[in-house]
Design a protein around this nucleic acid. Structure first.
Lengths: 247, 247
DNA sequence: ATAGTATGATTGTCCGACAATTGATGGGCT
DNA sequence: AGCCCATCAATTGTCGGACAATCATACTAT
């Protein structure tokens, strides 16, 4: 019987430094908003070169564990924001050739319960945000960009109204992909704009009335409508979601 | 009426380099598994110093767009794996003080449709993996770690059986948080082990039989059981999920 | 008090260097 | 010929130092 040894994991210095700092952030020793020591000071504390510290900082920066306030030098401890994390996940999804159908299927799972929960747990402030989103879309939906923004804004407002902070994070990458797919087809389906506005109004009314069942029902229809839109445009649902456009 | 100017965005070199390489990866110019040029060559191509290239590489590495095969030097283009992306999102969730209740609510949303879809779209291979997971848990559930692994493995196998590649990615951060919470309480609730095994068996049988309704029903009970477990242990569901334990 | 200025600290970038490790080359052996 | 091993160039990880540009602060003049 031979004893099997795992290969000793060699971790380069920049990674050990990054892990050490990340651990301090995650266990709240370094708190949100707190400024990090300067690079030279960190280099002295860890007894490594400043270059090593800088490579570690780039890693933490990419993970959104540290950030820099606009127009300032010192880095501060950051709390990863929704869109940042979603960007990572969107990369993963596009590189795995996820299809429009898969994204849509997840929306079909997430959104009806979200509407239901929003109708139950809405607050006046959250309800106001949904109203703003619905009104904004109704008054401004001429360009494709307007439609994409309006659709995303409505879903985001509903998700926020649930009070569950996990939902916006899970939803965000899906919305980013939906927006990318929507941008391509929105001008091919003229009646889509008004159907969207109608569904949003119905859902808003149900949420305002606290009618969870109706909110869910109309959200089911609303999500299904996106699929129908793609089908009407003869878009194969099994094509991969389009890669991010270079802005 | 004052004209508002956006601040001129200054992007440091390492970020521009990272963005340029990332764009090439996302538009498939650089394909999965392809080796990157050496740091010196990249420095020559971008006309910047090697230090700048290295900082950019750390950023890409942290985003899992490039990686290094173990025991090798050259970096290769990578496809972000589920657990890597999930780690980022888990950081975001813990730093936002997400509660056990919120995580559980998302599981309640995701898992029943997952079981339903698995019963519809299962393949023999995927079904086999679920069987392995269920058998593995039934035969090895003595330590808390065994239970945690078994629970996670079951959910992962079911999610994979749906054929939707988005689901495992969305589910993974939730599972990691569930596992963290479960590790704390599993030894306080002796009957939980057998209840979990029973539910897994029912769900497996329903998926094997293609009975979507029953699969969903038992998954609802299964997920609800976790909540009951926490309540029985007098765990306040509104406590934040525990931070990652330093292994 | 406000505007302008001087001063020091900090970051972004560059250059050069070196040990350790890896990939490749080529020679020797069967 | 094919295989194994020694040698060597290439590459990475890390270090030290350097400098311009920018930010923070204290100080000064109006």
């Amino acid at each position: 019987m031979s004893v099997n040894f795992e290969p000793l994991p060699f971790e380069p210095g920049y990674r050990r430094v990054a892990s050490a700092i990340a651990a301090r952030i995650l266990d709240r020793t370094l708190r949100h908003g707190e400024p990090l020591p300067s690079e030279l000071e960190l280099a002295a504390q860890f007894a490594v070169n400043r270059s090593t510290i800088r490579e570690a900082l780039r890693e933490l920066e990419s993970a959104d564990l540290v950030a820099r306030r606009r127009g300032t030098k010192r880095m501060v401890v950051a709390r990863p924001a929704t869109d940042q994390v979603a960007g990572r996940m969107r990369h993963a999804l596009t590189l795995n050739d996820v299809t429009v159908r898969e994204v849509w299927a997840m929306l079909e799972v997430l959104e009806p319960p979200a509407a239901e929960a929003a109708a139950r747990d809405r607050t006046p402030a959250a309800l106001g945000k949904i109203k703003v989103a619905v009104d904004g879309y109704r008054t401004r939906n001429s360009s494709a960009q307007d439609v994409v923004d309006g659709v995303g804004g409505f879903f985001r407002a509903v998700a926020e109204a649930t009070g569950n902070r996990v939902l916006p994070l899970m939803q965000e990458p899906l919305l980013q992909l939906l927006e990318a797919a929507l941008r391509v087809v929105i001008d091919e389906a003229p009646p889509a704009r008004s159907r969207i506005a109608g569904a949003q109004a119905k859902i808003l009314a149900a949420i305002e009335a606290g009618d969870a069942a109706t909110a869910r029902l109309w959200m089911v229809r609303h999500v299904r409508d996106f699929r129908r839109g793609f089908e009407l445009c003869r878009i194969d649902l099994d094509t991969p979601v389009p890669p991010p456009s270079p802005p």
